[in-house]
């Protein structure tokens, strides 16, 4: 990844859930980092561990989860933070936006109550000041008729409007890092573009770091500085965004790109699906998680766990025993 001191850094993060059917190894050995003011994309199919990784950072995992490894924010260990620091960490230094705007707001509380509670708790703002700030924020996220919305209930707003409210809410205390977990997956393409542009602009205007989670490579491609590709709870490839697309090394990262229909190609183009289905995470892996579906797999892939291997200066790494060469990229 690019140089500089990272704002958030995960080192060998592993997360295991205890379930009635035995342990689920949801995330294994994930390392990634994002710098102040930069945007990091995390892509992967559903179940690849994107949300769980970020929930670990946000302390949102259930008590059945066991976390290993380190997560540091601005040099402080997030997982073992003293409670005095914790008290004003979440919702202040980092904030998060979730996938489904329809369920992200409390249906029985008015918008103003939900918008102002965070500011009032963390910053001791008076009711009036908090309300003024709420209107400012709603205008910042370009919600039409911001002041009028304050007394409304969530069900009176459309999905796109609700996601704007959720984003405004996350910005309440000027976070240094905003984590957006598939913020547009539940929205129409047209609304999606609006929301993504908004996040882009906010990031530059507020000098905020952004982690943008998506299962859609297209979403991440235009809007991030770096990308991490995850599969089966592990990082497959990690690079600056243009490098990842220009010089793909990992067969999974490549397969993901190829499986998406290309709108500029006429009808009938044969798609290149990834055969099989995503891995079962309830047994620990002995080899590459992608091996059962990988067209490049060889015998050793099933028995040897690939480790992160650098390309060039090391900002680009991949975990594969038989990586694609330069010539194989799309």
């Amino acid at each position: 990844m690019s140089e500089g001191t990272p704002l958030l850094e995960l080192e060998n993060l592993s997360i295991t859930f205890a379930t009635p059917g035995g342990p689920v190894y949801a995330v294994s050995d994930v390392s990634l980092s994002v710098e102040r003011g930069k945007a990091l994309g995390i892509v992967g199919e559903s179940g690849s561990g994107k949300s769980v990784t970020m929930k670990a950072v946000m302390d949102l995992l259930p008590s059945t989860a066991a976390i290993g490894g380190r997560a540091t924010f601005d040099g402080i260990d997030v997982l073992t933070m003293p409670s005095s620091r914790r008290k004003h960490f979440y919702g202040v230094d980092v904030a998060m936006v979730f996938q489904n705007p329809m369920t992200s707001l409390n249906p029985v509380k008015r918008i103003d109550a939900q918008m102002t509670e965070g500011m009032r708790y963390h910053r001791d703002l008076s009711k009036n000041d908090a309300k003024k700030r709420a209107i400012e924020l709603l205008e910042l996220v370009r919600l039409p008729d911001a002041a009028g919305r304050l007394r409304q209930y969530p069900h009176e707003l459309s999905g796109g409007m609700r996601q704007r409210v959720v984003i405004a809410m996350a910005l309440a205390n000027d976070p240094a890092l905003l984590i957006a977990d598939e913020p547009t997956t539940a929205l129409d393409v047209t609304v999606q573009r609006d929301i993504l542009n908004l996040l882009d602009n906010l990031r530059t205007d507020l000098n905020m770091a952004l982690i943008l989670i998506s299962h859609d490579l297209g979403v991440v491609r235009d809007r991030t500085d770096d990308v991490v590709v995850m599969y089966g709870g592990r990082v497959m490839e990690s690079a600056q965004t243009e490098d990842l697309f220009a010089d793909t090394r990992h067969p999974y990262a490549r397969a993901l790109q190829l499986s998406i229909p290309d709108i500029s190609k006429p009808r009938g183009q044969r798609l290149d699906p990834i055969p099989g289905s995503p891995p079962d995470l309830s047994s620990p892996l002995t080899g590459c998680p992608f091996a059962p579906r990988c067209t490049f797999a060889q015998d050793d892939c099933h028995s040897t766990l690939p480790v992160a291997t650098p390309v060039g200066d090391g900002s680009h790494t991949f975990s594969c025993l038989h990586p694609l060469g330069q010539e194989a990229t799309v």
Binding site: G91, A95, P107, Y121, M169, A170
Partner: peptide, 24 residues
Amino acid sequence: DFISVARAKGLPKWYILFRHALRP
């Protein structure tokens, strides 16, 4: 989800219980 959102806002546990979870 809205409980996760409230927790991500850093609100204290009792507050979330009383002010977010109870009424619905």
